[in-house]
């Protein structure tokens, strides 16, 4: 039997399961239990209503786009922070975590103040016919903001441990820079990139505090799914609120499973590339 780092396999496993149960599974079970009040018929009617559909579409569609943007920009930022030395690098590096630390309501109010038609950015965008605050675009901006650190932070350690010798070898074997990036670097980064993407996506899907201030919250247009939950609670409709929550949970789970599959596939891709 291999030597284990942590003492007591049974004990540590027991703690892990108990903790997981307490922190994750118990609240989820409570959610399911609360939702039973609505019944299958009620659930289907709720999910088929145009308002629920529009809200789910905005929450998941917006989160997907925001996570994609974060993946692209996050990769770039991580690359710059790891590979280049420039004055203020450490400060920039520290700033990345700010969206984690900022209370989401503060982020929402700050973003709205920036992008409102009388805001610093909004006033330059308004003459161009671009309205960000109080539109679905504003929802996207807030989602991108809160999800940004995930991609950078998951990529940084992988990038730092990347052996530059491999790139040089590729170069000396005649690979063009683009080829080196796509065939040599990207396969190694892909699993971490996907993890960052998944985290950013999950965070954006469930985001309420920052989005609510910038969204405008017009039904069918700029209403996110978590807002529907809040509105149901306002009517003391616990079952309905839980049902929307479960719909979000199921979608999120499907997405995360999909991303997990992609990750496994990309892991094999990396092995082949190596």
């Amino acid at each position: 039997m291999a030597r284990r780092l942590l003492p007591g396999y049974g004990l540590s496993l027991g703690y892990t399961l108990a903790w997981l149960g307490l922190i994750v599974l118990l609240p989820l079970a409570a959610l399911l239990w609360k939702a039973t009040g609505i019944g299958m018929h009620g659930l289907l009617a709720l999910l088929a209503s145009p308002r629920t559909l529009a809200a789910l579409k905005l929450s998941f569609g917006g989160a997907l786009v925001a996570a994609l943007v974060n993946a692209a920009v996050g990769l770039l930022v991580a690359w710059v922070l790891v590979r280049y030395r420039f004055p203020g690098r450490r400060l920039f590096d520290a700033l990345i975590d700010l969206p984690f630390a900022l209370p989401t309501a503060v982020a929402g109010i700050a973003l709205t103040a920036l992008y409102a038609p009388n805001g610093w950015l909004g006033r330059w965008l308004a003459p161009l016919g671009i309205q960000v605050a109080y539109t679905p675009l504003g929802v996207l901006v807030a989602m991108a903001f809160v999800g940004f650190p995930f991609v950078v932070r998951t990529l940084q350690p992988v990038l730092a441990s990347l052996d530059r010798g491999v790139e040089e070898a590729a170069h000396s074997l005649g690979a063009r820079p683009a080829q080196t990036f796509v065939r040599v670097i990207l396969p190694v980064l892909a699993p971490a990139l996907l993890t960052g993407f998944a985290l950013a996506l999950a965070r954006a899907v469930g985001e309420y505090g920052s989005v609510i201030f910038i969204a405008g919250n017009i039904p069918l247009r700029s209403e996110i799914a978590p807002l529907l939950i809040v509105q149901k609670l306002e009517q003391f409709d616990y079952a309905g609120a839980a049902a929307v929550g479960i719909a979000m949970l199921v979608f999120s789970l499907l997405l995360l499973v999909l991303i997990g599959l992609l990750q496994r596939w990309s892991g094999r891709w990396a092995e082949r590339a190596a």
């Binding site: 109010i109 709205t112 103040a113 409102a116 038609p117 009388n118 805001g119 605050a133 109080y134 609510i212 201030f213 405008g216 919250n217 017009i218 039904p219 807002l227 809040v230």
Partner: peptide
């Protein structure tokens, strides 16, 4: 109504601070 805030203080903010 261009913006439906979730609460009264939010609406006051939109009107007074954001100029909407």
């Amino acid at each position: 109504v261009p913006v439906l805030d979730t609460g009264a203080r939010g609406a006051t903010n939109t009107f007074a601070q954001r100029g909407i």
